[in-house]
Amino acid sequence: MFDYNFHWRPVLKTLPDLIQAGLTTLEVASLSMLIGIVLGLCLALMRMNMTGPLKWFAVSWIELARNTPALFQLFFFGFGLGAIGINLTPYTIILTGLSFNCAGYLAENFRGGFQAVPDTQLKAARCLGMNAWQAYTRIVIPQVFRVVYHPITNQMVWAVLMSSLGMLIGFRELSGETQFFASRTFRIFEYFAVTAVLYYIIVKIVLAASRLLAMRLFRY
């Protein structure tokens, strides 16, 4: 009734390649998070403080990123742009797609964060003669970051896992690499089982790093 024979040897032999691909996953997820944080912060500020085209640009971005499948967003940057002659490399497609998606989600986190910091903090800062830039960067945004810190960590985990969609556009991150070896050796179950463990380890490392960083950053 169960005559499947496990063959782990091919998987173990290519483990260094898988780990290398895992680092690519971590790299693309981290980069897209960094870009997403900067863009998300801008989108949140545009949505809250602007009127007219800039506000609608921000709202449309956020709505599209949050309410359409991430896969479709990747396909848009891959095949969609490809159709009109803009050909991006798989790495750029996944980086652009993930950044676009993360920025949308993070923008809403930031918006909540800004609302959680009392506006009297801004007033107090301005009363000391700080200009708007100083008051935001020194007083408001550091407090916003504390509020949104755990949601940002969640988003980072989500970015690591979502980068596996790269496999569908031919990007050799962890899942793409796994797919490549699995189809060459037909050890599909073994490969994806090991890869699942690798994802689990990557996420655990991300969470541990986040906790350590929080202990350093938030002493108050």
Partner: peptide, 21 residues
Amino acid sequence: VNKLRQKLGMVFQQWNSFPHL
């Protein structure tokens, strides 16, 4: 106004200390 406000210190009802500093 930023220069002007340096002449005028202000203290609020809600003290508004900066919690992260």
